[in-house]
Amino acid sequence: MSAVTTADRPTTRPGGPPAPLEPPSLLRLTRVELRKSCDTRAGRWLLAVIALAVVAVVALVLLLGDGPTSLSHHLAMAQLPIAVLLPVLGILLVTSEWSQRTAMTTFTLVPRRSRVLTAKVLAASALAVLGVVATSAVSVVAVLLTPLATDAGADWSVSAAQVGQVALFQVVSVLSGVAFGMLLLSSPLAIVLYFVLPTVFTIVVSTVGALRWVADWLDLSTATAPMFDGALDAQGWLQLATSTALWLALPMVLGWLRIRRAEIS
């Protein structure tokens, strides 16, 4: 981990002991974690696949779709590949410390483990916001090309509520991946359970009639569905809070405690 540079090294005071080592700032740690997300071959390939998937989805909607061609519709559709793939990068941001055996180096340079974990959370959130910015740019290009590729005109309609809720949705999705990574500390196990557990939960609560009400309050996919169109109402925000508490807050708290207390070898 390159969080400590030459400027952070202790200097010898004339006639006195060396100056104490200053810990790297949280901003520097966040930049380091962002760089880690694309330093590995897996991270670079995953980012490339996400970019290609976003362009492909928007292009298919533009050229083959029979529905609306507004900026709002393109923005909503462009979120799908990011929502599926970017949480995997959030998982790898945590679990790679153990799979690549860099955790000892990281926590030696920064003994306060909570600072490193906070930096990982901030870096993952920044990746989610950057993803929304990138999909917004692709959606704008799609609207510009609409009159050329179809018989429809350019429709720039989009609401601030949709943009804000889409950004929040992506942050929740990526941080859910980070939470599973913290809890399990194994890339394969965290990735599999991140996709399998919510899917099984959704199938069970949707199949069993007596449990269908649970889907509205504890199924994250159900609670976040209105966010694609910026349509969350007061009850929707409450349902988002309860489902986020189950699938994000709970595993993150347990994982945070696990990493803080873990003996790293």
Rank of each mutant, 00 (worst) to 15 (best):
V196C: 07
V54L: 09
F201Q: 12
D229I: 03
F169C: 04
L29Q: 04
L257N: 12
P68V: 09
V110D: 04
L80P: 01
T95R: 11
R13F: 07
R28C: 00
L189G: 01
A51R: 09
V88Y: 10
L86G: 03
W156V: 01
W213Q: 11
R41C: 01
G90V: 04
A167K: 09
A51N: 04
S114C: 00
L109P: 00
M104R: 15
L183I: 08
M182P: 06
M104L: 15
L218S: 01
L47Q: 10
P23S: 07
L246M: 11
L144A: 04
L250D: 09
L232M: 10
L254R: 12
I259K: 10
T242K: 14
V32L: 11
M182S: 00
T108F: 14
L92V: 03
T244N: 09
V174Y: 10
M227A: 07
P198G: 04
L34D: 01
G236K: 13
E263L: 14
A215S: 06
D151E: 13
P147A: 07
Y194S: 00
R44E: 11
L240F: 13
P188K: 11
M182A: 05
L21P: 02
D151T: 06
T102F: 10
L122R: 08
S221K: 15
F201W: 15
L220R: 12
R113T: 01
S96H: 10
L62D: 00
G16Q: 11
S139V: 00
A3D: 02
T224E: 12
W213N: 07
L218Q: 05
G16N: 03
V132P: 05
V163H: 09
G67T: 11
I259L: 15
S2I: 08
P81T: 02
S37R: 12
V58H: 01
V61Q: 14
V166A: 05
P198W: 15
V61D: 11
S139T: 02
S159C: 05
T106I: 09
T118R: 06
V61C: 08
R9Q: 10
Q165K: 14
A234C: 10
W237V: 04
V32F: 06
A167F: 10
R41F: 11
E33P: 03
S96C: 06
F169Y: 15
V174T: 04
W217T: 00
V110N: 05
G67S: 13
G153R: 14
V204F: 14
V253L: 15
L250C: 10
L238I: 07
G15S: 07
R35L: 12
G15H: 08
